[in-house]
């Protein structure tokens, strides 16, 4: 009697186990997603006691008429592509480079992962100091020791140099993720395959393409897709480092909590969501052709 009942009870037990998680996710993700759409059609007054007013597509029109928005989209696309490609390539390169047994490998792994584990605020303080225009060590080396430029670069206050700075920072912060993912796969590749390629007279590049690449391809798709999404709506690292790189995350945050235009901010987040979705589909279909399993 009991065994028969168990099968039937499976489903209700599963729902019971999942119910707290589902309740939380419905309350704090599902409901906000719908509420976000509602807000994006409203004019939200600053005073929370006053009701919001339905204004149709005005928030969206305001977004699409805002030159800052287009600027922000371009910056975000450029930034996302640069950081995703560079951090993936660097992570892969380091993983391939270190893919052998050597003394101190664990220590080196730990050093690589450090910039990924430490809170971003702590890292950013150090960068602010290094790139300080008066007593920073970077300008000391660039200007006073190597005499590359006469003028002292104001790293944080010019759009182009700030962009470069944030890119290098994010590269340093995010490549360990790619490194760890590839490292796990590379160690699982059968070493005799490389020996066979070697016997066939393959160059290092040829053996990479013939042996390594097919093995890492699924990981590559995952790493690139996830990194693209995460960089696309990045906020913290950029915002803490400089006010000169207005990626969409920063644009959205400022619209909500500096300009206090919640309706427009909601509209921006819907557009952002749609852009990310399109981007992911594009990556999956065009850039990295995923084979059917």
């Amino acid at each position: 009697m009991k065994t028969k009942k168990r099968r039937k009870g499976d489903a209700s037990f599963a729902y019971a186990l999942l119910s707290p998680s589902l309740l939380l996710m419905t309350l704090l993700i599902g409901y906000p997603m719908i509420y976000n759409i509602v807000i994006s059609f409203q004019k939200v007054p600053l005073n929370p006691r006053l009701g919001s007013e339905f204004i149709g597509l005005k928030n969206y029109l305001s977004v699409f008429r805002d030159p800052t928005f287009y600027h922000s989209v371009l910056i975000t696309l450029l930034f996302t592509m640069t950081v995703t490609i560079l951090s993936t390539v660097l992570g892969l390169a380091v993983a391939v480079f270190l893919n052998r047994e050597f003394v101190g490998k664990k220590l080196v792994n730990g050093i690589i992962i450090l910039s990924y584990v430490v809170p971003s605020v702590c890292l950013i303080f150090s960068w602010r100091y290094m790139f300080n225009s008066i007593y920073g060590i970077v300008n000391y080396v660039v200007v006073d020791l190597l005499h590359i430029t006469k003028e002292v670069p104001l790293w944080f206050d010019r759009p182009v140099s700030a962009f470069v700075l944030v890119t290098i920072f994010c590269l340093w912060r995010f490549f360990p993720y790619a490194y760890m993912s590839f490292n796990a796969i590379l160690t699982s590749i059968d070493k005799t395959l490389y020996e066979a390629a070697d016997l066939d007279g393959a160059s290092p590049w040829e053996s990479f393409m013939a042996v390594t690449f097919p093995a890492i391809k699924p990981t590559l798709v995952t790493v690139v897709s996830l990194r693209t999404i995460w960089v696309f709506y990045i906020y913290t690292e950029v915002y803490l480092l400089t006010k000169q790189v207005d990626v969409l995350g920063v644009y959205l945050y400022d619209m909500a909590f500096a300009t206090h235009d919640f309706g427009k901010a909601a509209a921006i987040s819907i557009v952002l969501f749609a852009l990310i979705f399109a981007l992911v589909l594009f990556i999956r279909r065009k850039v990295l052709v995923v084979e059917d399993e």
Binding site: Y35, I229, L252, Y253, A256, A265, F273, V280
Partner: peptide, 26 residues
Amino acid sequence: MNEMFFLVYMFSGILLIVPLYKMLVT
């Protein structure tokens, strides 16, 4: 449910700050 969890894993963070703020303040 598996798919939903993966979707939430990808899309979260800043995208929902406006409704979350309004809800929790209310």
